[in-house]
Amino acid sequence: MNDKWMLYMRGSVTFGLGLAIITLLARWVTGNTILSSPQTLIQYGIAGSIGYAIAGGLAFFFLGLVAKRVRRSFPEAITIGDVLKEKLLPSYYHTFILMLLFMGAYALMVQFYAAGTLFYYAIPQLPLIGFGGFLLLVIYFGGYGGLKKLTSLSFYSVVMIFLTTILLPIYSYLQNGISPIYDGVKLYHPYLFFMGSHETVWFVSAAILVFTGQILTDSATWMRIFVTKPEKIGLAFQSTGLIWATVPMALLALLLFAISGKSFDHVYLLIQTMLQALDASFLMIIFVFFV
């Protein structure tokens, strides 16, 4: 196999704990996480939002156990396909790979859809042009760049994501005070505090399954597993789970702040409401640009 191709797939370094966590986080803090949080909050309340965050974290914990074992038994593998090749008979192996590719293309479509939606809120006049530019960048990094470039991009991306998710809620809560926000939410949206709905429990348990399935069948995640040092994988996944869970929680805090003073017309417009609630426009730009 040629060098250029191997460099594209594996990069040139073996990941330790830090790089593994950073690249996994960069892979899994997605448009879904951001755009589905308003709907989760309104339909399943605060308990549902926290449950959603915990579900994602649990999925990573579970995957850590599997990944450790697989990494040890297949030291030579690069993609999930290499493992399947050894474990399935040839013709069925192709069926399975095609299924994974189909799921991957679908997941990518959901990502693109989420990105398009954010462009739709940010530049309503020309959403498709912004989206096209976004796609060109994705093609550059994903198709031409290779793992090395992706890793350095991930590093900056994770720094910025956490800058945003820490800065914005703290700024909003400091500016307005915690108890006015709490009172406002209690006055306008008392149903959000309702716990113990059966639907919430089912939602969270189904979310655990869907998250686990998504992470388990994702080829990008497996490629990161196969370049990580075997002894670090368990810890890397556990830490990723813990850190990942803070992102939906931060979004929950921001959303609560956004709806604390008023009612809203439509769930899909909540992101817009949230952006408007950040009143200083540079904060809005930070949110759209970084997240």
Partner: peptide, 17 residues
């Protein structure tokens, strides 16, 4: 945007590989 960009690029990279 940047979070979505890295997530989508990683996914595309995995898919192509």
């Amino acid at each position: 945007m940047i979070a979505m960009l890295t997530a989508s690029s990683s996914e595309l990279h995995g898919w192509t590989s």
